[in-house]
Structures are given as C-alpha cells and as structure tokens.
Amino acid sequence: MKIILSNASSDPIYIQIVNQIRQSILSGELRAGDSLPSIRQLAKDLQVSVITTKRAYEELEKEKLIDSVVGKGCFVSGANKDFIREQRMTRLEEKMVEIIRESKELSMSKQDVLDYLNLLYEEEHTP
C-alpha cells in the first residue's frame, strides 16, 4: 500500500490518508484480514503526526473498513463491499444535494449544472 500526500490538496492530511486506504480496500488491493501499518509506523513513514494517523484510522474504523485489535494492530475488515459502496453513495448523494442548492442560489439552470459537470468530468479523465 502506497500513500502519497499532497500539501497542495485542499483536503486535510488525515482525509487524504483515509481516501487512499479506502480506495485500496474497495479496489481489492487490500483484502479482508490484511494488516495495516501501526499508527506509529504509518506516521513515521509519512512524516506526519501520530495524532493524524490515529484520526485517519478512527475514521476508517467508523466506516467499518478496518478493525482495531488491541495489542495486535489494525486489519482490513471483512465488511461487505456492497454495504461500503452504499455508504459512499449516500455521501455522494448528500454532496449532490448541496451542489443543487448552491446552483439554485446562483440561478443556474439544470442544463448549466449538467454542462459544467460534464466539463469537469472530462477534465478529470483526460490523461
């Protein structure tokens, strides 16, 4: 598992860690039962605070993506991928509702929002 942090990102470091570990789990790179680096080791490897990595692991545990076993470490949970996907879809839906509200406040039409979304989508998927 390789985690790359960006100081240029608007996301806090712990969120960058969470997102990358989550993606590794959902993509199958990390499988149920795989062990994760200790909180201290990950902090050392990434050159960040132990508090930062602890917070990232706590978030992943809340999402039921990892399990923490006292004295043993943290492991990828055996949680159902469909359940995890559904949780992510719910968060995505909440963000979309927020976008709809913001766009209405800006008096944007539905087509304007869709056009803008298509433009951003294409930019993200251009090599």
Rank of each mutant, 00 (worst) to 15 (best):
I15V: 07
M89N: 09
I39Q: 14
G71N: 02
I25L: 11
L65M: 15
V69I: 14
I21S: 11
S38F: 01
E93W: 07
A32V: 09
I25E: 12
Q47S: 14
V76R: 08
L60Y: 13
L92H: 01
Q87D: 02
Q23C: 06
Q20R: 02
A8F: 10
S27T: 15
L60M: 14
S35A: 11
G73Q: 04
Y57E: 08
S49G: 03
L60T: 13
V48W: 04
T53C: 13
E93N: 09
Q16G: 04
V97T: 12
M96N: 11
S35C: 05
Y57M: 09
R40N: 09
K95M: 06
A43V: 10
F83V: 02
E98C: 00
N80C: 06
G33W: 03
Q20T: 09
V18A: 05
K62L: 04
G73V: 12
D82L: 05
G78R: 01
V70W: 05
I21D: 12
G73F: 01
D82G: 02
L92R: 03
P37V: 01
V48H: 03
R55D: 09
S49A: 14
V97C: 00
L42D: 07
I51E: 14
E59Y: 10
Q87W: 06
L46A: 07
I15K: 01
Q23H: 11
V69Q: 11
K44G: 09
Q20N: 07
C74S: 15
R88E: 04
S27G: 05
L42V: 00
A56G: 04
I39G: 07
A56Q: 12
L42R: 05
E59H: 13
R91Q: 06
E86L: 02
I39L: 02
T90A: 10
Q87T: 03
M96K: 15
I66M: 11
S10I: 15
E29S: 10
F75Q: 10
K54C: 03
S68Q: 07
A8D: 12
T52S: 15
N80L: 01
I100D: 07
N19H: 12
A8E: 14
E63A: 13
E98L: 06
E93Y: 10
E61W: 06
Y14V: 00
E98Q: 05
I84F: 01
I13L: 15
R40F: 00
S9A: 12
L36V: 12
R91Y: 03
I39F: 03
I51A: 15
Y14H: 04
E94S: 13
I25T: 04
E63N: 00
R91L: 13
G33L: 02
S10E: 11
K62Q: 08
A43R: 08
S35I: 04
S27M: 05
M96I: 11
E94D: 10
G73A: 04
I13Y: 15
D67W: 00
S35M: 10
K72Y: 05
K64Q: 14
R55F: 06
F83S: 00
N19C: 06
S10K: 13
A43T: 06
R40W: 00
I39T: 15
S24Y: 12
N80F: 01
E29N: 06
